[in-house]
């Protein structure tokens, strides 16, 4: 998802007998769906895992602005441009909510940004794919934000209060993102033969990268068990992926587009769609930094941070001087 392959800080789940009294009381709260708040006691591994997951989620929101920002100046109409601007601005806000949630755990935003820029933290693999044309922008809103919603709706029930509340806020805005994307796709899919071809091409190219957003199969997903027990993760990767496929196929059919891969078939017995695996070796390769845009994305992030340094420092210095003058005048 926006957080993939998050290593839980410990492996295996402690049995009740292995837990200290404090850990037992903590697990009881989780089991009773009582939210954990910033100043409550929590196991160090719970805190560390959350910082990793929320941090990666925040980085994804911010890096996710890049593929879409690429098209703001080239949107086909003024209205589409205003909509895209609003969406990209929302992503910055989502990053902020999430960094704020991570900060309540004692890790500063600047520190998380530093870890990202040093390559020690990651963001979602999806944003290492390029947006080649306007149809991709529609497809990203529809599929990528659509996939994000599936994950984030589940995370509204996550055990850490600030994270859950950030998710509630984000989900409200994310629904605008998915709908504006689908709306843009409708225009293209129901438009001229050339537009239709572009829409189909965008769907075909972005389908598997969107499927990868949910992370590897549950059977391959190490460390999930403890995260599920702590309700840091609420649903498994495969559950979420299936939910995404089931809700998206009818939307493809409405557009009159062809299904993006031949493995998609309704399975009467399961009551779900079957579908093919993405190329997991490609997924691992993108995570390792070898996707089409990894280098560009990180360079853009570092440049933005470095170029902004004099502004951040200048504003802070101005604030200090103003405060000193106010004290002197008293």
């Amino acid at each position: 998802m926006y957080a993939q392959m998050i290593k839980t800080a410990r492996s295996g789940v402690k049995t009740r007998e292995e837990m200290t009294e404090q850990e037992r009381a903590f697990q009881d709260k989780i089991d009773a769906d009582i939210k954990i708040e910033p100043r409550d006691w929590m196991p160090d591994d719970y805190r560390a895992t959350l910082i990793r997951q929320i941090g990666q989620h925040a980085h994804s929101e911010v890096v996710g602005q890049l593929p879409e920002g690429n098209w703001i100046t080239r949107a086909p109409t003024l209205e589409r441009k205003a909509i895209l601007l609003a969406k990209v601005q929302d992503e910055a806000g989502h990053g902020l909510y999430l960094y704020s949630a991570a900060e309540t755990l004692g890790e500063s935003r600047d520190e998380l940004v530093r870890l990202l820029h040093e390559g020690r933290m990651k963001y979602s693999s999806i944003f290492n794919y390029p947006t080649l044309n306007w149809a991709d922008i529609g497809a990203v809103g529809w599929l990528v934000d659509g996939a994000a919603i599936v994950n984030q709706v589940a995370l509204q029930r996550t055990s850490y209060g600030p994270y859950a509340r950030a998710m509630v806020r984000i989900c409200k805005e994310e629904s605008f993102h998915a709908r504006q994307g689908y709306h843009a796709m409708m225009k293209m899919a129901l438009g001229s033969p050339e537009q239709r071809k572009m829409a189909q091409d965008a769907l075909n190219r972005l389908w598997f990268p969107a499927m990868m957003m949910f992370g590897p199969h549950d059977s391959e997903s190490t460390h999930s068990e403890q995260s599920m027990a702590w309700k840091i993760k609420v649903k498994s990767n495969d559950e979420l992926r299936q939910q995404f496929v089931d809700q998206t196929i009818p939307q493809i059919e409405y557009l009159g587009l062809e299904l993006p891969e031949p493995g998609i078939k309704w399975n009467e017995d399961r009551g779900h769609y079957d579908f093919s695996d993405p190329d997991w070796s490609e997924f691992m390769d993108v995570l390792r930094g070898n996707g089409p845009c990894n280098v560009d994305r990180m360079n853009a992030r570092r440049k933005a941070w470095d170029d902004g340094e004099w502004v951040r420092d200048g504003l802070l210095e101005h604030a200090r001087k103003k405060a000193a003058r106010a004290v002197a005048a008293e």
Binding site: A86, Q89, D90, G93, L96, Y97, S100, E103, R109, A166, R169, E173, R312, L315, L316, H318, A319, K322, A323
Partner: peptide, 23 residues
């Protein structure tokens, strides 16, 4: 409603307006 970073109160209000009252 949430929190944010800003150099001073004026900027904090401006940023809060942009982040928390867009709708």
């Amino acid at each position: 409603v949430g929190s944010l970073h800003a150099p001073d109160a004026d900027m904090a209000i401006k940023n809060a307006r942009d982040v928390y009252t867009r709708r």
